[in-house]
Design a protein around this nucleic acid. Structure first.
Lengths: 205, 205
DNA sequence: GCCAGTATAGGGTAAATACCCTATACTCAG
DNA sequence: CTGAGTATAGGGTATTTACCCTATACTGGC
């Protein structure tokens, strides 16, 4: 089993590597400290498992996850985060993640998560299963596409259309188009409203 | 050398333990997952080094650090955090920490930090030394005035300078002046950042 | 009584936005 | 196969923001 670990916190990353090695669960092919590097590696080598931190500067683990899904790569993703927020979990799963792990989980969970996801099943940290069910049944669907949510996320982090275009490798004009469409869908006409929405809906990571 | 590790993120803690063990740098006497437990241990056993996460639920690493200083215990503290915020570093050192380490530092820094602090010297992550100097010399007070907070609140609710001016019966230009001053105080240059700040600081609504 | 800080507000410029339009390409459901 | 929906991106314009400047008036502290 080949595993990629991506986390911009060096200590966390080294810790993960040490844990996976002592568990003798797989061969690590790479550890990187940015979403962009993670994507390059996954695109070129298609590891079995990619353990990605959600919050990683420019390109988040969420974005990488979306790209993997879009390209139909066989790599399965376990997203790693500090926050136990049901909205974020939902976003993560919609982005195509097979696993969701909290950093304050016991390290045994990590091994269990890797085994479960590698076997093709979904792994959720703690007992978020039932909570997720109820959240999904009565969540308001704002009909935003994955791409649109991604754009909102970048906007809420204070990036300009130009900057977002650069990180996502698309034109600033396209970002503007997405932005405008989201505004229309949500009935907004100001960045401030969009940022508030993103933060409250857990899209801002 | 006896070391205590306290971090509420299990994975991070396990990682730290693994790293310290492989470096054969010290005997770990305990690893705990809360500030309260950390304090109990330090008070009873006075380890040489305590590596404390700053953000740990109820009792933060900062609090534990202050207690150690107040009691005059010989335990030296290395504070651990994710955020490279000069303000936090300043607070940490004032609280009596001898070391300040970022989670995204290379793990070699951890070993170096332990050795340096154990030798009685101060260790700061990366090259925060010079940054800290300049921060302290011209320590700007980021306190916002009542009026400024009021302006931020309206901005975070999605109003334009013109609308805010109308509501508060002042010129849009004045609103702009307040806005610019706040930006400067906080080091921002985007509305999105201001909105996020307002929401997180509870200035919104 | 003066100085620092705050609130007010004007002039100006460059950047970013909001939003209108068209247009191509791709996918998926009926 | 066609049409709806999405993602892409260009043109264009008006508004808004971000930030530079100056300037007046009020207040509280030393």
């Amino acid at each position: 089993m080949k595993i990629l670990v991506a986390d911009d916190h060096h200590i966390v990353r080294q810790g993960l590597l040490a844990l996976i090695q002592t568990a003798s669960i797989g061969t690590i092919i790479a550890d990187v400290d940015s979403g962009e590097q993670a994507w390059q590696y996954i695109f070129n080598h298609e590891p079995d498992i990619a353990i990605l931190d959600i919050t990683m500067g420019e390109v988040s683990g969420l974005s990488v996850c979306q790209r993997i899904k879009a390209r139909g790569l066989k790599t399965r993703v376990i997203l790693l985060t500090m926050h136990n927020d049901i909205k974020v979990i939902d976003t993560a799963l919609e982005a195509g993640a097979q696993g969701y792990l909290l950093k304050n989980d016991a390290f045994n969970s990590l091994i269990k998560a890797i085994r479960t996801v590698h076997a093709g099943r979904q792994y959720l940290s703690a007992d978020n299963q039932s909570e997720l069910q109820s959240y999904r049944t009565n969540k308001t669907d704002f009909d935003l596409t994955i791409r649109e949510k991604e754009i909102i996320r970048h906007i809420s982090l204070g990036q300009t259309n130009k900057q977002i275009g650069d990180t996502l490798h698309i034109s600033a004009k396209t970002v503007d188009a997405h932005r405008t469409r989201v505004m229309k869908k949500l009935g907004f006409n100001k960045t401030a409203q969009l940022v508030r929405f993103a933060i409250e809906e857990g899209l801002s990571l």
